[in-house]
């Protein structure tokens, strides 16, 4: 019993504990780790991943998966870069709309045609990737520096990077929807037991459609920030983002089978995986060792493995209890 509750604690709060420990480690070891510049850089860069992971979190909570988010973000970045001469609003809306289109397509294929999410989103991942390359004519698309578009990615609001602000607002809304609306509860009910949800008359199809549309829209928004932040639409960026997003969601304690999940812990998962990269950079900066950036993937992978093992041990404990 005691062991189970320890495991449960680790599983639910583990990501926060790990995040706190990593921040403590960085603060003690490196100068400027908690300096304004570093915090601002980390937040600005990782807010794109945070948005993608938020959409992924909702999809996974219904028991599904969305592999198309990386390509969708790339497509969003190209579309918004192409539209950036018309101003920030048009560029942003264009990028989000492109993502939404992919998300809606996913939703229709999965809900109406009853294709498995893995296959459906794998197909749209390829399609979005190709569309992005076609629109960009196989090169990066410079954004317009005349207007306000670049402020979205590069600007600050009272020293807070605007992308981070967007991400925080998105997570607040996401948390509100999950915990305080019937749609949010239905998301978890579907992941927990889809058959029972249907027999209860819950709008299973509508909510499944919504989470894929949401995931696409958020990926499009992440693409907009990508273009604005780096000054160009990048058709070949976004490769592997879907895996980073899935890893963040799982590290945050959301079950891949659906039914159990938390928006806040997903954000903590994104920050944890993002900070691993940051800490590695600082470590190299000390000059004692020189670790290749590829080590970050190794360390992230180990984290993911640890979480998954923890979850499965907890699941067996509960089923035998």
């Amino acid at each position: 019993m005691k062991k189970t509750s320890l495991l449960a604690l680790l599983s639910s709060q583990g990501v926060l504990i790990a995040l706190a420990l990593l921040i403590l480690f960085g603060w003690l070891r490196y100068d400027n780790f908690l300096g304004l510049f570093n915090i601002s850089t980390v937040l600005r860069y990782n807010s794109m991943f945070a948005l993608v992971a938020l959409g992924m979190c909702f999809v996974i909570m219904t028991g599904g998966i969305d592999l198309s988010v990386g390509s969708t973000a790339a497509l969003g970045s190209v579309v918004s870069a192409l539209l950036s001469p018309y101003g920030m609003l048009v560029g942003t809306l264009g990028g989000v709309a492109a993502g939404l289109c992919i998300g809606i397509l996913n939703g229709v294929v999965i809900v109406r045609l009853r294709i498995l999410p893995f296959i459906a989103t794998l197909a749209t991942m390829l399609a979005a990737n190709g569309t992005a390359l076609l629109l960009a004519q196989d090169q990066t698309v410079s954004v317009s520096y005349d207007g306000t578009f670049i402020n979205l990615g590069q600007g600050d609001f009272y020293n807070i990077p605007i992308p981070a602000l967007i991400a925080v607002v998105a997570y607040l809304i996401g948390s509100l929807v999950l915990n305080f609306t019937s749609t949010g509860r239905t998301v978890l009910a579907i992941g927990g037991n889809e058959d029972a949800s249907r027999l209860m008359g819950l709008p299973v199809n509508r909510v499944k459609f919504l989470v894929y549309a949401l995931s696409g829209g958020l990926a499009g928004l992440a693409g907009v920030i990508l273009a604005s932040q780096f000054g160009a639409g990048q058709p070949i960026e976004g490769v592997g983002w879907e895996l980073f997003a899935i890893a963040s969601v799982v590290v945050g304690g959301t079950l891949l089978t659906g039914g159990v999940g938390s928006v806040g812990a997903t954000l903590a998962g994104v920050m944890l995986l993002g900070l691993i990269f940051n800490v590695l950079n600082f470590e190299n900066g000390l000059g004692w060792i020189s670790l290749s950036a590829y080590w970050q993937s190794v360390i992230r992978g180990l984290f993911l493995l640890a979480v998954v093992i923890l979850q499965s041990r907890l699941a067996t404990k509960e089923s035998t209890a």
Binding site: T181, S182, R185, T186, N193, M200, L202
Partner: peptide
């Protein structure tokens, strides 16, 4: 087990999930 309960949700939620539309005001439960 297979068609009734949603195992990881609370007693309260299992009781009221089907009732959500009536319990929701402007989208908020």
């Amino acid at each position: 087990k297979l068609e009734g309960i949603i195992p990881d949700m609370s007693v309260a939620e299992n009781m009221t999930l089907a009732l959500m539309p009536q319990l929701t005001k402007m989208g908020i439960v």
